[in-house]
Amino acid sequence: MFGGGGGGLDPRKMKQMMKQMGIDVDELDAEEVVITKSDGEQLYFEDPDITVMDARGQETYQVVGEAQSREADAGAVGDASAVEAGADAAAGDDAIPDDDVEIVAQRAGVPEDEAREALEATDGDLANAIQRLE
């Protein structure tokens, strides 16, 4: 699509072009990524390669790795301690994670209480909350 032949673009040139279009690309260091599907099944990636693209405030995450599957009940045992540990921090607002509040507050340049209100008003949609605050 971008280049002639089958070789593709030089990664440096691709990064330079993306920067000119206002897209920042960074690597994210993570130990594990967990995706909980609507049927309760969990997919998890150990030591994934994660690329974050920020296109004018809209972040896109690309996770590369081998997905492993586990049943919802198997994950519930491990999740119980996390729920207990975070119960005090999430008192009263169990739908909005603190990490999301921090992201919205930083991106929109507002205090965390305003970011939380915007997230609650947009049902946890980060992009819409940021847009609402700008």
Results as ranks from 00 to 15, higher is better:
A85Q: 09
A85W: 05
A85Y: 01
G86V: 00
G86N: 11
G86P: 00
G86S: 08
A87Q: 11
A87V: 02
D88M: 05
A89S: 07
A89T: 07
A90E: 01
A90S: 07
A90G: 00
A91P: 00
A91V: 04
A91G: 02
A91D: 04
A91C: 02
G92I: 03
G92A: 06
G92D: 02
D93W: 07
D93Q: 13
D93S: 14
D93L: 09
D94S: 09
D94Q: 13
D94E: 10
D94T: 06
D94I: 00
D94W: 00
A95S: 15
A95R: 12
A95E: 14
A95W: 02
A95Q: 12
A95L: 12
I96Q: 11
I96H: 14
P97I: 05
P97R: 08
P97T: 09
P97W: 05
P97L: 10
P97D: 15
D98K: 15
D98T: 14
D98P: 15
D98Q: 15
D98N: 14
D98E: 15
D99H: 15
D99Q: 15
D100G: 12
D100V: 10
D100R: 15
D100C: 14
D100N: 12
V101Q: 09
V101S: 14
E102A: 15
E102I: 07
E102T: 15
E102D: 13
E102S: 15
E102P: 05
E102R: 15
E102M: 08
E102Y: 05
I103Q: 13
I103R: 15
V104Q: 06
V104R: 13
V104T: 11
V104W: 12
V104H: 14
A105H: 09
A105V: 04
A105S: 10
A105D: 01
Q106E: 00
Q106L: 00
Q106D: 00
Q106R: 14
Q106K: 14
R107A: 07
R107D: 00
A108T: 04
A108S: 08
A108E: 04
G109I: 07
G109T: 08
G109P: 10
G109S: 11
G109Y: 13
G109F: 11
V110P: 01
V110L: 02
V110T: 03
V110S: 03
P111E: 13
P111C: 03
E112T: 10
E112G: 08
D113I: 01
D113E: 08
D113A: 08
D113M: 08
D113F: 11
E114M: 11
E114V: 04
E114L: 09
A115Q: 05
A115F: 08
A115R: 06
A115I: 03
R116Q: 11
R116H: 07
R116K: 10
E117R: 15
E117M: 10
E117H: 14
A118R: 13
A118H: 11
A118C: 12
A118G: 11
L119G: 02
L119F: 10
L119S: 07
L119D: 10
